[in-house]
Amino acid sequence: MSKAIEVRELHKYFGDNEVLKGIDFHVDMGEVVCVIGPSGSGKSTLLRCVNRLEEPTSGKIYVEGVDITDPEIDLDRVRSRIGMVFQQFNLFPHLTVLRNLTLAQRRVLKRSDEEAVKVARENLAKVGLADRETSYPAHLSGGQQQRVAIARALSMNPDMMLFDEPTSALDPELVGDVLDVMRTLAREGMTMMVVTHEMGFAREVGDKLVFMDGGVIVEEGVPADVLANPQHTRTQRFLAQVL
């Protein structure tokens, strides 16, 4: 199996604070990898390094075999192939749902307006919001906004998706709809890296579970095994708190 994402000896400092202390990690093509860990463990920073929203201090990151830490790399092109979903949705509030989905298609992929709208509508239907294309984000619930954000990322036809705590800002009753969409994506074979606190989702959908603490990967393995039978005391302590 070829590697979608490969991270080697990744270090990241914020000032004097070392938040990633040498991460080695990979995501295979078509695989769903869930990253869990206490807050401040560096899991979001790791995710954000993969599309270089955070600049790695040292180490290498390969996306589909291409070293994206190379200063000569066309970063916009790389990013257009990696969908990203944020905890705070980050929809563009001044644009309608439809325009949120077509903007980058037209600007980055140079699709015609007609084609962009067609792709956008397909993806809105996929997340169950075909009837909301003329709404503005402020008029949608958090769960709907997050599904629009997923549809926006999908409209770029990305090779992989990064999820940064996609359900953490949602009211509990809205989490299910978002997880359903993600479950569907996983079933369709999308490569996904998911930073999450949803252990049920990780167990059910994840191919691999990574537990991070203090800037290092403490433990990784098949989700059901790690969750049921953690090997390290730090993992045990964390799971005891959240489960």
Binding site: R77, F86, L103, A104
Partner: peptide
């Protein structure tokens, strides 16, 4: 304008110029 707007735009592959023109400035 919240930093997340810039990040969302850049993560879609939009250049900094496009981001300024289509996302940041209108807001």
């Amino acid at each position: 304008v919240p930093k997340g707007q810039y990040e969302a735009s850049r993560s879609l592959g939009m250049s900094s110029l496009h981001t300024m023109r289509s996302v940041t400035l209108p807001q």
